[in-house]
Write a protein that binds this DNA or RNA. Structure first.
Lengths: 256, 256
DNA sequence: GTGTCGCCTTGATCCAGGTCAAGGCGGCTT
DNA sequence: AAGCCGCCTTGACCTGGATCAAGGCGACAC
């Protein structure tokens, strides 16, 4: 179920009419997960939906940011760059993830819609007031931030110490696991999913070039670790076999 | 001013008698920064000091962890490893930083004392109760976690996209900046400090080998960007010159 | 149909940083 | 003083992944 992608590009931030929070697909995983009915009502009062096309920049690093938001549908990437144009993805926001930092006025990263994205936005001021007055929101935000910090640290191990092949295997297993966690945990010895990222975005995530990504995917396919359905469809016949390629310690390893 | 390092190694977790929170050197930066006097009194009731020698492991990944803690003095490193022994540092804890995760029973990373370390430990159960009952602690912990997440993301850019020389320059400028922030912000065109890390720990931080670290430090010295006092003392004659070596975008760059 | 555009693959070559190896230096023990 | 040990430096060589370059393939417009 995809959000209709408006044609053209750039200025397509349609504001959608408010929808009912209780029917929201991310109700029990987002920052509002712990809210009681009365708290939800306050949130309903300050929320707005916005849509973005794939490839569209949601925020530019350094820009003033007057809102924070939950990702409702789609995928967005946080990126940082160097003087000469090299860039590194530093965050991947999936449905229910939180965008923005309470207490900060300007964006620290570029935020780009990787696929069509719908955000549930809250004006920053009122949201910060809520953070002070209703502990449920702050508690949930703390949990989510700690989870993100764990993910960032797993990612640092990938960036700093893994080979190209291990990096690709790690990314695929992360995406497969996340896919599984959405569709109710099947015990999972095999898996299949659609890559939400282009080769270039994968390279940006993993600190590689897109050529190396392409080569290593071909190598994993040649070695029977994965099968391809077209260019984006991934099938993993034996998940344990993919995990063995990640280089991770079997115990003490990724804990999610 | 260094904590007396107990001789030998291994089993030196002396418990020090409680000290007064109001005289604590990290009082206004740690997780208790926002606490009122009455809240401090509760904390005093559940705190214990522990000391560790340089090189000593504070916690092993996967171990049960019955406490959370603030670093009072010294430097500790969080590390993650792969099957074959490669390791990556994923966190560097300095005075006032927080160790442990409320709500998690087992440690997710190895924690090693890089220099002699003193921790102010709180038993996990009572601390979690406090987190629920006194919003000031949760609010401060959220702030600190968001700051750590920012640091982790800057670090990811370093790991993923920078050259060895840029990595070293980045680490030195981070350490110099932190040094300056402790000794009251001098506008800083020059700087000097003692490296709290061995070459190996620097390599572990930066995703390099210790040989490459050594070579790049020599190169920066040869090029006049830094001067060495012994093997650990670093002098930066012109801080802007060091910054130019980090590869960072002048604006939108590191915001601390 | 034909053209073009975005995305992906594959090949050939190069080089930054890893690996292996040999010391150097300062502090501590005996 | 002699020896050892932890930490650091430097050299020689090798290799994994970057870079440069040439297409392939499917979707969409005309």
């Amino acid at each position: 179920m995809q959000v209709k992608a408006a044609c053209g590009f750039g200025m397509t931030k349609l504001t959608v009419e408010p929808r009912d929070c209780t029917a929201c697909p991310i109700r029990h995983k987002a920052v509002c997960a712990r809210c009681e009915t009365d708290e939800l009502e306050i949130l309903e009062g300050i929320k707005t939906y916005r849509n973005y096309d794939a490839g569209e920049t949601i925020v530019f690093s350094g820009d003033e940011m007057d809102f924070v938001a939950s990702v409702v549908t789609g995928v967005a990437a946080l990126s940082q760059g160097l003087e000469d144009g090299r860039t590194q993805m530093v965050g991947l926001l999936l449905p229910a993830d939180f965008l923005g930092r309470p207490g900060r006025r300007t964006a620290a990263y570029d935020v780009v819609a990787v696929s069509p994205v719908t955000l549930c936005c809250f004006r920053r001021g009122p949201f910060e007031d809520l953070l002070r007055s209703t502990p449920h929101i702050g508690q949930r935000l703390l949990e989510m931030t700690l989870d993100e910090l764990d993910a960032a640290r797993e990612w640092m191990l990938i960036l700093g110490r893994k080979t190209a092949r291990e990096k690709i295997a790690s990314l695929l297993s992360i995406l497969a696991r996340r896919e599984a966690s959405l569709c109710q945990a099947t015990p999972m010895c095999e898996a299949s999913f659609i890559l939400p990222l282009t080769r270039e975005a994968m390279a940006d995530y993993l600190g590689l070039t897109l050529e190396t990504v392409s080569r290593q995917i071909s190598a994993l396919k040649r070695d029977g670790v994965i099968r391809l359905k077209g260019t984006r469809g991934i099938e993993v016949p034996d998940f344990a076999c993919l995990l063995a390629e990640t280089g991770d310690d079997a115990d003490g390893g990724p804990l999610i």
